[in-house]
Amino acid sequence: MLKGFFLGLGSYFLFLGSVLRRPESWREFGKSLMREIELLGLSSIPLVVFISLFMGAVLTIQTAINLDDPFIPDLYIGVAVREGIVLEFSPTIVSLILAGKVGSNISSSLGAMRVTEQMDALQVMGINPAGYLVLPKIVACLLFFPVLIVFSIFMGLLGGYLAGDWLRMVNPDHFLMGYFDEFNPYFVVYALTKTVFFAFIISSISAWYGFHVKGGAVEVGKASTKAVVAMSFTIILFNYILTNVMLQ
């Protein structure tokens, strides 16, 4: 079990070595990158909007109920909601959800290419399948996840504000002032740093699982499940490590 883990880890780093190389053709790399940004990034926007709006709303409701005290002004509810969204909900929870959507897409599409010998076809032509197929996916995630997370932060804040206003749980003006009160830009740096780490974790781990599928369609499905479990563990672990390093 432990031996298997370390062998896997070794193979993962070797895999990264073959992926992180100069592309054989920049033009083809550019084309693939555009395709991946569309496939992995743009297509995730509706999901991110939906989740973030409702997450923000729930956060406001819960915080308003917990801080339902005449001596605590609504401004502090706004501050608490903002910190919750910026520090944790958008970067971590949305990344976990993207691990499910984007990660399983990466591992199953690469796995399908593996078992149908499309990767062998590339190799026979003299194209390194790891570099050609995986690098654009990783770069697309590194570039586009931060955009998605910033987007998610705005949507979360919007959802929180709208819920507080509609349900009349807070005074909207005081609540909104909370969003701008003693705003610490370093928290955004922290959130985006986490996002970049998570983007790399998601794209590279799911690619590794998909790339090494052996067998047929059933194994492709299994690899994608394993990939989601491994990504979730790694994200939670790195969330703890990065928080320790950056916020202490």
Binding site: M113, A121, G126
Partner: peptide
């Protein structure tokens, strides 16, 4: 050098292996 020589090879796979 193998990479250059590969351009002189074509291969048809059992399941075609076309890029889907």
């Amino acid at each position: 050098e193998r990479k250059v020589l590969r351009q002189e090879m074509g291969m048809v796979f059992q399941a075609s292996a076309l890029f889907t």
